[in-house]
């Protein structure tokens, strides 16, 4: 299920093209912004020394709603993952490798599993 393009949360006029992701404590905040407001927002964050975690993820709606760029098992699109932060199945992790890795880095600050493996 593809997600509609939201309106920019800063100017409330232009359609949002980017999502700015910030981590604070254990919560992740996503702000959907147009390109113009993203530039201004980033400038303000940097000026005030706020940690952006280096993350500004492109929503790329065209690619996001393209069936060629959706998971063949569950139909999840890139936009679904960037907007909702949730893959639809295990195969999404392989399908959207780079994007998922960025999103995991934002959510957890790490990308490498250090724990146990299944006993089977």
């Amino acid at each position: 299920m593809a997600v509609e393009n939201p309106i920019c949360e800063c100017c409330s006029i232009r359609p949002a093209k980017l999502v700015v992701v910030r981590r604070r404590r254990d919560d992740t905040y996503r702000t959907f912004v147009c390109c113009e407001c993203a530039e201004e927002l980033t400038r303000v964050y940097v000026k005030n020394g706020l940690d952006l975690d280096g993350m500004v993820l492109g929503m790329d709606r065209g690619a996001g709603s393209d069936t060629a760029y959706s998971c063949r098992l569950c139909g999840t699109t890139l936009a679904d993952i960037v907007v909702g932060g949730r893959p639809g199945c295990c195969a999404c992790y392989g399908k959207f490798g780079g994007e998922i890795e960025n999103a995991i880095k934002v959510a957890q600050g790490h990308t490498l599993h250090m724990g146990k493996t299944p006993e089977r």
Partner: peptide, 19 residues
Amino acid sequence: YGFSNTYGYLTASLSNVGT
């Protein structure tokens, strides 16, 4: 189980993936 050698146990939320 859904498992990746890189990310570990694969979950519905990215905040639970890994262990």
